[in-house]
Design a protein around this nucleic acid. Structure first.
Length: 457
RNA sequence: GGCGCGGUGGCAGAGUGGCUAUGCAGCGGAUUGCAACUCCGUGUACACCGGUUCGACUCCGGUCCGUGCCUCCA
């Protein structure tokens, strides 16, 4: 069995992954706040953790992947005030769209997708425990986590207390005992969503939901906690503090053992921002490109590196996907069950086990594709193993085969026939005319040994 | 200002103390009526300056540049 290595942000090094319980691996990744369409950065997170889950599922008998839906948040309230739609409608709508969009990218729904609003009770309980243990206090209708009460605070993002105070750029609310203290519970006005609590009607702060949901659905400690790199501080730092303190734990790993963070997506070299007008929505992109192409593009760079989205990146992904489809066609009559063998040179699992080294995996995939196209004499009997390898590789990478779009309408079929006839008569002028005509219709001709086919350009 | 990450061939992007991925684009060739697809061939690139070493792109120190976080953020 392969050994999986992962870069653990908590230890700042690549480590061999050792499950807490090999019979059941548990991971959690911070999901989206559902107030608008998901952007390409959300998609990277979804794709990366989907990939990690696929790798884990091939290594371990049982894996539970939890990724939440944040459906209570001030941004949602703002969206409600802007559009007039009720909060419920907004959150359910964008939750559904998120799942559809991610599915188009081959990112399966998590095994459990808990909603924050359905865990208010657990959050209140957690906050109560924090107050009891002296880690949280009530002030001015709020409940705040007292950062100085947790000595190990800052261990994930490697920030000392002094640095945070020095770096504080935000105006500090007067009711805070310490500038770094953060909100666990805040009061809601009558027109804001709220729940009854021992501290009055209010709603949770941002961080507490993940602590509550991870604990409820996975138990503590669990194996892997993930999210975008920007969540390291303060979100994940605060999650750790809350969860450890609520249970009287000093060790930061008492919440989650391994922390995995994916890098950011930039667009044409710039950070995505609504103000810059370069906010790429998955919803729009899947109209323009096949989902698997977008997935391949998102996987183009190692997950911890920044990924700069550009036409080039998409073009390369498109070429790769094209080759995959062609290879698939090439092997359509081969029975992969004859020979279930994966050569080392083609074994992308080995690459993925090294901290999800997708570029290395792509390299192996390309080697496999070349082998398939080469069809060397005397090696025909390897074809079942090539096909088997291809199937396994694509499964692991989460790349789905969309059947080649051949001439589906009679118009193109007729044109192809006419072209074949023209070629037979050596009327190449006419044949080329027809090719151009078909191109205008959005198809490219490919002459194969079994006659011409038209594939979507 | 603090903390972190990175600078690899035209572009994207891995990796390694000596054998120098992979892809895209380009060029030459095969195939093709011409193309497309595919195949073959073709590029010694690792920011800069020191140091360690028989040997460094890879280790150490410094310089320059870029970038992320420190505030909501995937």
């Amino acid at each position: 069995m392969s050994e999986l290595k992962l870069f653990n942000t908590l230890k700042r090094e690549k480590q061999v992954f050792i499950p807490i319980d090999p019979a059941h691996v548990r991971l959690y990744a911070c999901g989206p706040t559902v107030y608008s369409y998901a952007h390409i950065g959300n998609a990277r997170m979804a794709v990366v953790f989907d990939l990690l889950t696929r790798v884990l599922k091939t290594l371990y008998p049982k894996v539970t992947y939890v990724s939440n839906i944040t459906d209570v948040d001030d941004k949602i309230i703002a969206a409600h005030q802007e559009t007039g739609e009720t909060i419920d409608i907004i959150t359910r709508k964008y939750e559904a769209i998120y799942n559809e969009d991610m599915a188009a990218l081959g990112a399966a729904e998590p095994d459990i997708q808990p909603r924050a609003t359905e865990h208010i009770g657990e959050m209140i309980q957690l906050i109560g425990a924090l107050i009891e243990r002296g880690h949280a206090y009530e002030a001015d209708g709020h409940v705040l986590f007292n950062v100085p009460s947790f000595e190990n605070y800052g261990g994930l993002s490697a920030r000392s207390r002094d640095e945070q105070v020095a770096g504080a750029r935000v105006e500090v609310a007067s009711y805070k005992k310490d500038p770094a203290d953060f909100v666990l519970w805040k009061p809601s006005s009558d027109d804001e969503p709220g729940w009854e609590s021992p501290w009055g009607r209010g709603r949770p702060g941002w961080h507490i939901e993940c602590s509550a949901m991870a604990e409820k659905h996975l138990g503590l400690p669990f194996d892997i906690h993930g999210g975008g790199a920007d969540l390291k501080f303060p979100h994940h730092e605060n999650e750790i503090a809350q969860s450890c303190c609520a249970h009287g734990q000093e060790d930061l790993a008492a919440f989650a053992a391994v922390w995995v963070h994916n890098g950011f997506v930039t667009v044409e070299g710039e950070k995505m921002a609504k103000s810059a007008g370069n906010f790429l929505l998955v919803h729009d992109l899947i109209e323009k490109y096949p989902g698997p192409v977008l997935r391949l593009a998102l996987l183009g760079a190692h997950y911890r590196q920044p990924l700069d989205w550009s036409d080039q990146v998409v073009h390369q992904a498109q070429k790769l996907y094209d080759k995959i489809l062609r290879a698939w066609e090439e092997l359509k009559d081969v029975d992969e069950n004859q020979q279930k063998v994966i050569l080392n040179d083609h074994n992308i699992m080995l690459a993925l086990c090294d901290d999800l080294n997708v570029p290395e995996a792509f390299s192996k995939l390309n080697a496999l594709l070349s082998s398939i196209f080469k069809k060397p004499e005397g090696l025909e009997d390897l074809r079942p193993s090539y096909k088997y390898s291809l199937i396994k590789s694509l499964e692991l990478l989460g790349v789905e085969i969309e059947e080649v779009k051949e001439e589906s309408n009679s118009e193109i079929a007729a044109l192809l026939e006419e072209r074949t006839a023209a070629k037979a008569e050596k009327n190449f002028t006419r044949a080329d005319e027809i090719r151009d005509q078909i191109l205008v219709l959005g198809y490219e001709i490919e002459d194969t040994s079994e006659g011409p086919i038209a594939r979507k350009a």
